[in-house]
Design a protein around this nucleic acid. Structure first.
Lengths: 206, 206
DNA sequence: CCTACCGATCGGTAGG
DNA sequence: CCTACCGATCGGTAGG
């Protein structure tokens, strides 16, 4: 039997930090899903043994919780900053979509985990996460309803349009590539235009 | 939604069929994901023991395989029938989106499983599934490029638009409800309009 | 950071 | 359709 030799004597002290653990979990959860990822895979990626992970986290569930709420809370902040109620619905929608789209390009892994595994939170956490997501949806829907009232937008069912816009932004996380021909900023700008198209914003005033 | 109700004492012989097993797995995979569902949960739902499932299936993986390819193959057929190359890009896009959206409303569970768990197929199956999905994306992209060339559509990046349209249709599976105020037909029609808006199809000719 | 170990559960098989 | 059972792996703990 060949022995595996890992030289971890090159430096003293902890070899990984809790953010390393979170980052490894983030990559694996995004790739294979929460239930499709074992803590052994997380540990392997960091070249440590599974029990050592517990020096840097509370539980597997807590990793998911931190990823999901870290992301949803930040989206909350992004949207609040972008949804300037003094502006026109057109400007509000464009700014919110740009912020939302940009986040899904820059933080791909987080977006994928939120999208795939939020349902795996338990109890109170699940309810809290769903409430945040409903709030984000309501933000977009309210903007669309305001634009419909003002005559800037032409859409029959604001709720359908808000779902469509949210989900088309989420799709960015599925294909965006840092080395691709479009930057996150360019993608965000383009998605702002697509969203305005979608709600029938008259294009001459865009 | 369709509950399997079987009075096992009323008649001799098998109490469940292989389509019952597939249907139970479909419901659970859609709700909790492939890796989040155990065969014991599938068996419990059918009021039988886990080993009895093997009278009606080959393996857990084969259930996922049948769900995914049953759905992707049908989408393939839907799109081929809707994408009448003799028609204008506007009509082709509307018909394909209506078909795709309609399927995501009527076959919610299948759509959710395909969307969440296709990546859990192994080896050759995964490659085949991804090839089918790429083909569907290319179908939409080609229509958009044709419409751009003909001047009917006004969109900068057809690939972004095709991804956005595909994913906004997928979102239907997340919220559609048979008892909701909109029927699958109505939702499909509305999404056809949203997609034409999104690609900047001039609205007076819609 | 490790080794040693825990009970629970996993997908699946044997055999009737 | 069942009971009995398999090896493997799961998240997690004890203790150093």
């Amino acid at each position: 039997m060949a022995e595996v030799h890992i030289d971890r004597r090159s430096a003293p002290g902890p070899s990984v930090s809790s953010s390393d653990v979170l980052d490894a979990a983030l990559t694996l959860f995004a790739e294979r899903g929460y239930h499709g990822t074992s803590l052994k895979q997380v540990a392997d990626r960091l070249h440590i043994r599974t029990p050592s992970l517990y020096n840097h986290m509370d539980s597997k569930a807590s990793l998911l919780q931190r990823i999901v709420f870290g992301t949803l809370d930040q989206i909350d902040i992004d949207l609040a900053a972008s949804n300037d109620l003094a502006a026109t619905p057109r400007v509000r929608l464009r700014n919110c979509v740009e912020a939302y789209a940009h986040r899904h390009a820059v933080h791909r892994r987080e977006a994928l985990v939120v999208n795939q595994d939020t349902a795996n939170l338990d109890g109170a956490d699940l309810a809290r996460a769903q409430e945040l997501q409903r709030r984000h949806e309501r933000t977009f829907r309210q903007i669309i309803e305001d634009g419909k009232k003002s005559g800037e937008f032409h859409v029959e069912h604001p709720r359908l349009a808000s779902f469509a816009i949210l989900e088309m932004c989420v799709s960015i996380a599925r294909w965006f590539n840092d080395e691709g021909e479009l930057s996150a900023d360019q993608v965000a700008t383009e998605y702002g235009i697509l969203a305005l198209n979608l709600v029938g914003a008259s294009s001459d005033l865009r």
